[in-house]
Amino acid sequence: MERDPILSVDRISSSYGSGLVLEDVSLSVKEGEVVGLLGRNGAGKTTTLRSITGVIKPLAGTIEFDGRDITDLPDYEISNLGISYVVEERAVFPDLTVEENLRMGGIKQSDGIMTIEEILEWMPRLEERKSLKASKLSGGEQQMLAIGRALRSKTELLLLDEPTEGLAPQIVQDVIETIRRIRDQDIPILLVEQNLNTVLEVADRVYILEQGRNVYEGSVTDLRNDDATQQEFLGVGTELTDKITD
């Protein structure tokens, strides 16, 4: 069961200009694996994803993808290597149509894992709205579009930042279903979440960050039974109530 890591983050420290947001954070994602990255607001989860994708450059540490050091590569080159990143704010292009948004996903990478037709078949609500501007979609539809767009591009690793945040429970289930289907295609996923249940449902392994540092690492099974850790690092109970975003 021991597989090679496709992504290795080794003791990175990152900052937005004043004070460290990440300090010596390490994690890895292996082939075919879904890894959850948990933590409270401001723990550094999004910053970890932004460091991996080159949106910000870590001040120290190294990031390897597929055996290659990508720490100093510009963000667009990292994308071209096959890391697809669905950001927290969804970031669909509001004035482009659904179809154009999907076209953008594969604009530089013709070797995406799905064609536009396949994505639309998979997400029938988008098929109905493909000529609409993305800004006309609901939050859940925008989230599906953002994921679909990521799949249009070369994806050897998918990074998802809080894909279920702010969505109605029914739609959350749709998104989780989508993540499962992606996992079933053997695409490794690094899933950032505040919602512990989502992670418990789909992930294999889990990391928890607190104040920019690693504080927990283990399998989903371990975490499920570890009430003390849940209590200490993730708040009260299994459902996180602290939903204030900065």
């Binding site: 994708t53 667009y76 080159e77 994308s79 990143y85 154009e100 953008m104």
Partner: peptide, 16 residues
Amino acid sequence: RAGAQDKQTVRLMGVN
């Protein structure tokens, strides 16, 4: 057109 709306996301699509 996409770049006019969101440059960072366009870069994340692999575009310089």
